[in-house]
Design a protein around this nucleic acid. Structure first.
Length: 222
DNA sequence: AGCTGATCATAA
DNA sequence: TTATGATCAGCT
């Protein structure tokens, strides 16, 4: 693992220096082998970039650069710069959530400041030849924050009311709740309709592509 | 073609 | 099992 950046400026400088590199080039710098495809290595690019930038949160429920209050997110884009995938944010809490507020939530703490790293993601480009784009730091503005808060509160209320199994990816304007598990057989505790504990497939919060499309457009002017 | 539900690898 | 990193792939 490379050293951890000691300031936002250092982090951004190191991130900028990756722009334009192919995955093959960055992999070589980090003594890693490039997988033929990402089917069995879905997190490979994200972990490669974490390694290069010295992220240190590991598998803790904290932003990647906790001392800088920065979360790192790669985002696969097509040749027009549009996101190809939704962005996973965090696992959704399904029990012990009474009194939990948006501003105390893990979701808020992970999204209050994000270093976005666009990456080429089209499947017809060999993984080794895909390139890293221009990283940019983002903080939600007042309107984005209000939207996030509203979606989060609506979804969390349904969870609190024992309706988790009725929430689909269609709920929410910019945030959605979807399965986040090894497979559909995985189980975790959640609140049942009668208030007792039941077992359900774990869920995660994801940012919809319509929202991240606007983020990228704002960042790169238009 | 885009989206939703399902899935893969790994650490602790 | 839960958390991290996400993308896959069938269906509409």
């Amino acid at each position: 693992m490379k050293s951890s950046p000691q300031s936002i400026e250092e982090l951004l400088a190191r991130a900028d220096s990756m722009a334009g590199l192919t995955f093959a080039q960055l992999a070589k710098l980090n003594d890693q082998i490039v997988p033929k495809n990402l089917r069995r290595d879905k997190g490979w690019v994200g972990q490669l970039i974490e390694h290069e930038l010295g992220a240190n949160a590991g598998s803790k429920s904290e932003p990647d650069f906790n001392h800088l209050d920065v979360e790192l997110k790669t985002i696969p884009i097509n040749s027009y710069g549009k996101p190809l995938e939704t962005t996973f944010v965090t696992v959704a809490p399904l029990i012990n959530i009474s009194g939990l507020t948006f501003f105390d939530s893990v979701l808020f703490h992970k999204l209050k400041q994000v270093l976005w790293v666009p990456i080429e993601g089209e499947r017809d480009i060999p993984v080794a030849e895909r390139r890293i784009g221009c990283p940019f730091l983002w903080q939600p503005d007042a309107s984005q924050l209000a939207q996030l808060k509203q979606d989060w509160e609506e979804i969390m209320e349904l969870i609190a009311l024992g309706q988790v199994t009725k929430v689909t990816a269609r709920h929410g304007e910019i945030l959605q709740l979807r399965p986040k598990a090894a497979n559909s057989a995985a189980l975790t505790e959640s609140i049942a309709e009668d208030g007792s504990i039941q077992l359900t497939n774990p869920r995660g919060f994801y940012l919809k592509t319509q929202f991240t499309t606007r983020l990228l457009a704002n960042a790169f002017g238009n």
